[in-house]
Amino acid sequence: MSSRTLWKIGVFTFMAFPAVLLAYWWSLLLQGQPAPALGVNPVQKTVLESGVFSMRALIFALAVSPLATLLRRPQILSVRRMLGLFAFFYASLHGLAYIGLDQLFSLTTLWEDLLKRWPISVGMIGWLLLLPLAITSTRGMIKRLGAKNWKRLHKLVFAVAVAASIHNILITKGMQIEPLVHASLLALLVMYRVAGRPRFPKLSPAT
């Protein structure tokens, strides 16, 4: 097996592990057996953890290309799409756990969240922006869109980073460290791209 394949399998296993555990614990709970790892309030824990994993997957996905450049290891790039899809996967799980497990698919709640509770609306918008990126993540879609359009579309990930960070900070009670760390890392990764892109000399207007 090539080292590239191993790297991909390793990253996949690492990223999928939390989801597999969650699924296993929930299968225990629904059979009426205890799942101590999910704690006293498994619904709340599931919503919280899936959101955090989604945030981390997004950070990892955005860190791939800077790392590949800095470490001069282009092989790293092979997991970028996978990490992006994991970010989408955990964000979907997060939304589904909230709407399904926590709110029992109450349409009233969903409607109120969207209109009246903007810390939640921002999160929903973040997921909606992530959706087209997940759909167009296949090789076929890149071909159909053309590399240039595809790249332009996938700049949406910066908007996703902003929405996710705002949602994360606003949804947390009090002044907590973790959402701020997540947001700073995302800001750093976005800034790296803005500052790192080759610039064309521009004539500054005379003052």
Partner: peptide, 15 residues
């Protein structure tokens, strides 16, 4: 950020 109309009772109920 959320409705206060309902609550989840934590009393050891399972399943």
């Amino acid at each position: 950020r959320w409705s206060q109309a309902t609550e989840r009772r934590l009393d050891g109920r399972g399943g």
